[in-house]
Nucleic acid binder design. Structure first.
Lengths: 211, 211
DNA sequence: ACCTGAACACCGTTCAAGT
DNA sequence: ACCTGAACACCGTTCAAGT
């Protein structure tokens, strides 16, 4: 059975989501595909190249809608939503995809965020650092939820991603105020925090488009 | 030559910084230590336990000064500075340390940030999501600079951490405005953005302590 | 009782031997 | 010319054989 490159990547993604990046091996992948290990080298030059392809494939599933009518806030929230969607559909590949530098995902979301900021009246030297801060927040959120791939924390049981802090609450707490909270609500909160901060730096008074 | 646990971890850190996490193997570590591989198992139960110990050791070097006289902004900036210091002294272990969930580092910085926010007048349900957003930004910054450990991007030549975007500029750019910028300045900018946003949610007018 | 070398199951990758 | 199995160097971990 000769596998196609698409099929190889698809099964690799499934394996990573099931058992973690650390559990992915070419041998396992080959047996899963029902072919010999060496046949993989016809489509993928090395294991690290396979991982890059996986990151690219997963990230390309990230939807960044064009929405010609939408405000810049809606656009920024769309990027955030795309990150969340990635974390929901491919929790273990998401970190790989989100943090692999220079990926097509990185370029696409860079430009998408820059376009939104452009729409908000933020240009060049003003926009780029804001874009980086915004994407750093989204990436950090992803990583804080999932842990870095290949880390000792990686081969955990899969499931809905949840904050680790629930399982490891701090021993002491200054005001004893660290109750478990809803990760989604926390994410939204931090997003609001950033969007408001960005709006405060906008030339336009409310940041919305004028009629 | 019987190695001590401390020595094992120290050499492991050095090896990771020199060649990347992916290049760390118990065999290599043993030869570097001048002992047999199996002797390592006297002090470390497994390789993943070793990686956790490395993360913990590196993170424990993060300095969070108490500064009883300082304002909450200064404290928050101290945490950011500690993250930066980590990225500077141990670029490759930093991501491991910053993103390993439930680590002592996580608990310490959680509490430190909460204490600073408490000082700013932010309590309980107000403070926790802000803390998470703040640390997510710092973590995301670290990961965006270094790439996730074990990722295809990891075994790169070491050096001063720099933004990947310099090497992979976007092909197209909405306003053609994505010139290379100073990573440190960008980091400071995002930090200011967040601190300002937090200050805007503070009960106290300026966020500074009253005399 | 304790240490340690050989041994085991696995890994990524290569390459020469077959078709 | 092309595919593929055996082979290579390495890996994490175990365990029985030695002291």
């Amino acid at each position: 059975m000769r596998p196609t490159r698409k099929h190889i990547i698809a099964v690799a993604i499934a394996l990573i989501e099931r058992d973690g990046v650390g559990a992915l091996s070419l041998s396992r992948l080959a047996t899963e595909l029902g072919c010999d290990v060496v046949s993989l080298y016809d489509h993928v030059p090395s294991k690290s190249a396979l991982l890059e392809a996986v990151a690219e494939a997963v990230a390309s599933g990230m939807e960044l809608p064009s929405m010609p009518e939408a405000s810049w806030e809606i656009r920024l929230r769309a990027v955030a939503g795309a990150f969340c969607g990635l974390a929901r559909t491919h929790p273990r590949c998401a970190v790989l995809a989100a943090a692999t530098p220079g990926s097509a995902r990185a370029k696409r979301s860079d430009e998408y965020v820059l376009a939104a900021l452009h729409q908000a009246g933020l240009r060049g030297p003003d926009a780029v650092p804001i874009m980086r801060a915004f994407l750093a927040y989204l990436t950090g959120w992803l990583v804080c939820q999932a842990g870095p791939p290949g880390s000792p924390a990686d081969p955990r049981p899969t499931g809905r991603p949840s904050l680790r802090h629930r399982e490891f609450p701090p021993v002491t707490c200054p005001a004893g105020e660290l109750h478990p909270t809803d990760p989604d609500a926390d994410f939204e909160f931090g997003l609001d925090l950033l969007v408001d901060a960005i709006a405060a730096r906008c030339p336009a008074p409310t940041g919305r488009m004028l009629p």
